[in-house]
């Protein structure tokens, strides 16, 4: 995690849903982007199936939805650079951090509580 003068960051958005099949991921990312646009220091935590949002090479999907890959590529522009990934979910799905589309920090199950406590506000999608 990045170092700041204030030990607490403003907002942690937890994303638990895969990119296709529901609007949870899209609406969670929208909340993160709006918070960042309002000057909040935002981190993302991909948990469970949410880690599949970071798989490279995604198209918009068969349901004529825009998909979320383009939004993820914009995160850096919004200064959302702390991207945490549930390490246990990654290994359960047979994935590794270095094959994901963005640079992420894998977090062990033990360290998750610490990650949550490091933020003033947590929103779960």
């Amino acid at each position: 995690m990045h170092e700041h003068e204030d030990p607490l960051r403003d907002l942690l958005v937890i994303l638990r849903h895969a990119p296709h099949g529901s609007s949870w991921l899209k609406e969670g990312l929208d909340a993160a982007l709006v918070a960042a646009a309002f000057g909040q220091r935002v981190s993302l935590l991909f948990m469970g199936e949410g880690v599949t949002a970071l798989m490279p090479g995604q198209g918009p999907g068969a349901l004529e939805q825009k998909g979320t890959a383009a939004t993820l590529e914009m995160l850096e522009m919004y200064d959302i650079e702390t991207l945490l990934v549930d390490a246990q979910a990654l290994s359960a799905l047979g994935l590794s951090a270095d094959e994901l589309m963005l640079d992420v920090d894998p977090v062990s199950a033990e360290a998750l509580a610490e990650a949550l406590a490091a933020h003033r506000l947590v929103l779960t999608f």
Binding site: D10, L11, D30, A31, V34, A35, A37, F38, Q40, R120, L121, L123
Partner: peptide, 9 residues
């Protein structure tokens, strides 16, 4: 959505 962030703050 800005209102949600404002409430959270």
């Amino acid at each position: 959505l800005g209102q949600l962030i404002d409430l959270g703050t």
